[in-house]
Simulated scan of single mutants.
Amino acid sequence: MSLRLGDTAPDFEQDSSIGRIRFHDWLGDSWGVLFSHPADFTPVCTTELGLTAKLASEFERHNVKTVTLSVDSAQSHVEWIRDINETQSANVGFPIIADGDRKVSQLYDMIHPNASDTFTVRSLFVIDPKKKVRLTITYPASTGRNFDEVLRVIDSLQLTDHYQVATPGNWKHGDDVAIVPSPKDEDVIRRKFPKGYRALRPYLRMTPQPDR
C-alpha cells in the first residue's frame, strides 16, 4: 500500500554508504528528505546527487537531513560517490542506502511494476520531526527532480505549521501568503497579523509573510 500524507514514515535498518542506519534514530528531531534512484552510475542520478550535495547548506538551514537510496550495494555507492564528487564538483556527505533486498523500496512503494519490476522510480518523501509524511513526489526514471521545488515546499510547510496561513500558487519565500478561512473575528485577525492584510474576498485575505 502506498504512503499517504500524514502517515508515519516506516522505520527501517539498512546498510548505507556511511554504515548501518536505523532511519528514525538517524533522523532524530530533524526534518528529512528521503529519495530514491533507479541505479548507481547513471547520468540523471549523478546530477541529482551532486545538486543535493551543493544544496547542503540550504537543507541544513531548514533543519533537514537528506538521504537517498538505490538497489545497489553500499560498496557500489562509495565508488559512485567518487564519480559524483569529481564530475559534479560536489562533496556528497549524506548517506546512500543500499537496498539490494528491496526492503525499503517495498515499505515506501518505490518500485512501480508497470515502469520496472526491479528498479525504483524517482520517489521523494518529505518527513517532519514527528516522522509524518508531509510531501510525496514521484518522477519517471528519465526525468530529474527540481530541488528548488522541494525546498520551496519545505519553506511552506515550516511556515504554515506555525501560522494560520497557506501559501498561494507559485509562492516563494518572502511573498504574501493567504490567511486561512477559519479566523473570522476582525480583532483576532489584527492581533495575529499585525502587518495588516488585504481582503480580496471574505475567503481570500492576503498578508505579508508573518515571519519576515
Rank of each mutant, 00 (worst) to 15 (best):
T46A: 05
G50W: 04
H37Y: 08
V133S: 10
A56W: 13
R134G: 10
K54I: 09
N91T: 07
S73D: 10
Q75R: 10
Y108K: 09
D99G: 09
A98F: 10
F41K: 05
S73G: 06
R134S: 10
H62E: 09
D29S: 10
V126C: 06
E58P: 02
T47L: 06
S123N: 15
E86C: 05
Q106M: 05
F125I: 02
R82T: 14
G50K: 05
T87E: 08
T47E: 07
V126G: 07
V71S: 13
V67C: 13
V92Y: 12
N114K: 09
W31K: 02
S105T: 08
F94R: 14
T68N: 11
T68S: 13
T52Y: 08
E60I: 03
K130F: 07
L107H: 05
W80Y: 12
G28L: 06
D72H: 11
N63Y: 03
P113E: 08
P43C: 06
F41T: 07
T120L: 11
I111N: 11
S89I: 02
P38Q: 08
L69W: 00
K130P: 15
D109H: 09
P129Q: 00
T42A: 12
A53I: 01
G28F: 02
D109G: 04
P129A: 00
D117V: 11
S73K: 07
L69G: 03
D83T: 15
T42V: 14
H37P: 04
S105E: 05
F125K: 00
G50T: 06
D29R: 11
V64W: 00
H37T: 01
N114R: 07
K65P: 05
V64R: 01
V33N: 02
G93A: 12
H62W: 08
T120S: 15
L124M: 14
D128T: 12
P95F: 13
Y108E: 07
I84T: 01
R134T: 12
T118Q: 03
N91Q: 13
G50C: 06
N63M: 04
L49I: 09
T42W: 11
V121M: 14
K132F: 12
E79H: 15
P129H: 01
P129G: 01
Q88M: 13
F119W: 03
L34R: 10
L34G: 06
A90H: 06
T47D: 05
S30I: 02
S116I: 06
N85L: 04
W31C: 03
S30Q: 10
Q106C: 02
A98N: 04
L107N: 04
G100T: 11
V44F: 00
T118L: 09
V133C: 12
D83L: 13
S123Y: 14
Q88K: 12
L49E: 05
S57N: 03
V126S: 07
V104P: 00
S36F: 06
S70N: 14
V121F: 04
D109A: 12
V78H: 13
A39Y: 08
P38A: 15
A56S: 11
Q106E: 07
I97H: 05
R102S: 03
F125D: 14
M110Y: 13
K65S: 10
T42K: 02
I97P: 01
V126K: 02
A90Y: 07
P113S: 09
Q106W: 15
L49R: 04
F35E: 03
I97F: 05
A115T: 14
